[in-house]
Amino acid sequence: MKVAHRYLAALLLAALWPASVHAATALDDPRLFSERGYRIDRYRSPTPASAPGAITVDTAQVEALLNAQPPVLVVDVINLTFLHGRFLQTNPHRSLPGALWLPNTGLGHLDDDWYYSRHDWVGYLLGEISAASGGDMSYPVLVLCRADCWLSWNAVKRLAEAGFQRLYWYRDGIDSWEAAGKSLEIVSPRPPPFADLDPPETH
């Protein structure tokens, strides 16, 4: 009888599990997503198969895009602490060769969180990509971070809403590139236009 009860309990859990997972990751869940649909919490967790307005690509397709004419613009959005008007970096960051590193631009609350909204992070993202693409909204842009990382998903959504037309999402990002034995290079964060505007901390 006890075995039967355990079996029934296991079946019940199996039936309820997909529903609970879906409820926790639904794109309209206010615990995880803003009213505008950006991910705002648990950035390192499983991502969907696609991102708004973009084509999801794998490593082989990324290589093809890099070798195309014009080569795709690679944008890395992995976070980096920004304090007192400057990025605080203690360890080198390795990304795809030639990547444009725009930290923090994949956060979901850039427009409504006081700490981030006091600076124009969205303008930083759009301005740097526009400059790198010569202002061509149809220039191919590839966005990445790491595997199970919603930062790149947010950034792709932000770029699509801004009108960029050829967007690619490297869903597993740097982790997938490195796992395939591809070379990485040390990249530096591109300083935002509001860098060094905050006075240094005094003691």
Rank of each mutant, 00 (worst) to 15 (best):
Met1Glu: 15
Met1Cys: 03
Lys2Ala: 10
His5Ser: 15
His5Phe: 01
Leu8Arg: 01
Ala10Val: 06
Leu11Cys: 05
Leu12Trp: 03
Leu13Asn: 02
Leu16Asn: 09
Leu16Tyr: 07
Trp17Met: 14
Ala19Trp: 15
Ser20Phe: 11
His22Asp: 09
His22Glu: 11
Ala23Gly: 13
Ala24Tyr: 00
Leu27Asp: 13
Asp28Ser: 07
Asp29Tyr: 06
Arg31Met: 04
Arg31Glu: 11
Phe33Glu: 06
Ser34Thr: 00
Gly37Trp: 01
Ile40His: 12
Tyr43Gln: 01
Arg44Gly: 12
Arg44His: 15
Arg44Ser: 12
Thr47Val: 01
Pro48Ala: 11
Pro48Lys: 07
Ser50Trp: 08
Ser50Gly: 00
Ala51Thr: 03
Pro52Met: 05
Val57Met: 15
Ala60Trp: 03
Ala60Phe: 08
Glu63Lys: 05
Glu63Val: 05
Ala64Leu: 14
Leu65Val: 08
Leu66Arg: 02
Asn67Pro: 09
Ala68Gln: 04
Gln69Glu: 12
Pro70Lys: 06
Pro70Asp: 02
Val72Cys: 01
Val74Leu: 01
Val77Leu: 12
Leu80Pro: 14
Leu80Arg: 05
Thr81Val: 07
Gly85Asp: 03
Gly85Arg: 13
Phe87Ala: 00
Leu88Ser: 11
Gln89Cys: 03
Gln89Phe: 00
His93Met: 07
Arg94Gln: 10
Leu96Tyr: 10
Gly98Asn: 00
Ala99Val: 13
Ala99Tyr: 05
Leu100Val: 14
Trp101Gly: 01
Thr105Tyr: 14
Thr105Gly: 09
His109Pro: 10
Asp112Tyr: 15
Asp113Phe: 07
Asp113Glu: 15
Trp114Lys: 11
Tyr115Asp: 12
Tyr116Gly: 08
Ser117Asp: 09
Arg118Pro: 13
Trp121Ile: 02
Trp121Phe: 14
Val122His: 01
Gly123Phe: 11
Gly123Asp: 08
Gly127Trp: 04
Gly127Cys: 05
Gly127Met: 12
Ile129Asp: 08
Ser130Trp: 10
Ala131Val: 00
Gly134Arg: 06
Asp136Ala: 13
Met137Lys: 14
Ser138Met: 13
Tyr139Thr: 02
Pro140Thr: 00
Leu142Arg: 12
Val143Phe: 03
Val143Met: 04
Leu144Lys: 14
Arg146Met: 02
Ala147Val: 10
Cys149Met: 06
Trp150Asn: 09
Ser152Trp: 02
Asn154Pro: 00
Val156Thr: 09
Val156Lys: 02
Val156Asn: 10
Val156Ile: 13
Lys157Glu: 04
Lys157Asp: 04
Arg158Trp: 08
Arg158Ala: 04
Arg158Met: 13
Ala162Pro: 04
Gly163Ser: 01
Gln165Met: 07
Tyr168Leu: 12
Trp169Lys: 01
Asp175Gly: 00
Asp175Pro: 04
Ser176Phe: 06
Trp177His: 02
Ala179Gln: 05
Ala179Phe: 10
Gly181Tyr: 15
Leu184Lys: 04
Glu185Ile: 02
Ile186Arg: 04
Ile186Gly: 00
Ile186Ser: 06
Val187Arg: 15
Ser188Asn: 10
Arg190Val: 02
Arg190Glu: 13
Pro191Gln: 08
Pro192Thr: 05
Phe194Leu: 06
Phe194Val: 10
Ala195Trp: 10
Ala195Val: 04
Asp196Pro: 02
Leu197Asp: 00
Thr202Arg: 09
His203Phe: 11
His203Ala: 10
